[in-house]
Design a protein around this nucleic acid. Sequence first.
DNA 1: CTGGATCCAAGCGGATACTG
DNA 2: CAGTATCCGCTTGGATCCAG
Lengths: 117, 117
Amino acid sequence: MAKGDSGNDKHCSNPGCTVTYALKLIDGKWKLPIICTLGEQTVRYNELKRQIKGITSMMLTSSLKELEECGIVHRKAYNEVPPKVEYSLTKEGMSLTPILFNLGLWGQDLKCNERSE
Amino acid sequence: MAKGDSGNDKHCSNPGCTVTYALKLIDGKWKLPIICTLGEQTVRYNELKRQIKGITSMMLTSSLKELEECGIVHRKAYNEVPPKVEYSLTKEGMSLTPILFNLGLWGQDLKCNERSE
DNA sequence: CTGGATCCAAGCGGATACTG
DNA sequence: CAGTATCCGCTTGGATCCAG
């Protein structure tokens, strides 16, 4: 609609391709695990790292930063020693959940069909 | 549930992470454009290539193959000379559309909030 | 017309070590 | 505790050429 169009976003004829934008926000190996781990709770950095098996500090930090920048995750830092930072989903982040749930149902459906090949 | 679990799919606590599976199916630069271009129609290979600006034969072919293998796209080849192959969405593919639409609405919402930063 | 094969560049993500 | 910095391999996708 405004600027920021890099050339070929005309394909997704239906919603104007905020779909592509949305998918980009949750793209990357760890975004989904982070979002799901947060859920309705407020979780500290190291607690996230502990619960999400296999993630490194770097990936956790950078993923959280991206999720924060686009408004999915809220970051609250306490000025204490030792440091304490809590992460939680924003209301926009929480509104993703039902959509992902539907997507999951759809995926489950396709998974079944796969077995009949 | 069966085999095929590569280690850490336990994160997405809600639907069991068929979400991750679903997202993987539509992952890649061209899957979405292809799905949206197909829509309700039946489109030939070269017509797809023409409508999806920037895609190469290779990416179109491989993307279509993956979409076909997972049951999103239907491929119908006519044994003719010159060759004629038509692609269309399966009913599972079409059932994705409303979900993507909701995802698009969600993305649109986040896009607006972005401007206030 | 509908692909397949090969080569190559860029980016994502992993491993490791370090810091306030 | 909560990150940062650097290096590096692997995967994704693009360019080009070839084929039935």
